[in-house]
């Protein structure tokens, strides 16, 4: 018999700080450096009125530089880069800023390079999910977003390997989010 999915709830304000420690850097694993272009992925998480959202949890999930996920469903799993964590977690600081060290993921099948993002924290009873893209090439998920909003899902290169992606939870220039 089909079971009813359990109700979720917000993390609240006191998600342990330790739970994010050490997961902001995806680019080193088992003493190895990840293959591919290393980047700093950073930005603000902002609420209505452009106010910084402090103490929010940002989680990411992405493929390695060859477009491979370390997961049994990926037929190429065995070839996933041993020097790369596909998952990361960061917490926004007092200015609402998060920061990851990662790589630009590879494309695969019908997906352009992209990073899955989930935002958790006070005010959100369910995680908010979206994708970060690096350019506007064809992608089955990118194309679900109304054309005039797509630029809001592009990370902006700022030089020296820094890419900026601001998450605007609500209000002007609100980030497009997907059905979770």
């Amino acid at each position: 018999m089909k079971q009813i999915v359990s109700p979720g709830c917000t993390t609240g304000p006191f998600f342990p700080v330790d739970f994010s420690d050490g997961s902001e850097d995806l680019s080193q694993r088992n003493g190895l450096a990840a293959k591919g272009q290393h980047i700093i992925l950073t930005g603000h998480v902002l609420e209505l009125g452009g106010k910084p959202a402090r103490n929010m949890v940002v989680e990411i999930w992405q493929a390695d530089a060859s477009g491979i996920f370390r997961h049994p469903l990926d037929p190429r799993q065995q070839d996933c880069d041993p020097g790369f964590w596909c998952w990361g977690r960061a917490r926004t600081d007092a200015d609402g800023v998060y920061r990851f060290t990662t790589i630009i993921p590879g494309a695969y099948e019908d997906r352009a390079p992209h990073i899955n993002v989930a935002i958790l924290g006070i005010g959100l009873t369910r995680p908010l999910v979206t994708n970060i893209f690096f350019d506007a090439r064809a992608d089955v998920v990118f194309e679900c977003v109304p054309a005039e909003l797509r630029s809001r899902l592009l990370a902006k290169p700022e030089g020296d390997g820094v890419y900026r992606f601001d998450v605007i939870l609500r209000g002007e220039n609100e980030t497009p989010f997907f059905v979770e």
Binding site: L48, D74, N116, G123, V141, V145, L169, T175, V179
Partner: peptide
């Protein structure tokens, strides 16, 4: 009231990227 998006959430197909996750 200040953090939940005002726009409707967007539907998308589920690809390998959404069907996998951090078992690692």
């Amino acid at each position: 009231a200040t953090r939940v998006p005002s726009a409707p959430l967007i539907e998308r197909p589920l690809t390998l990227s959404e069907r996998t996750g951090p078992t690692e």
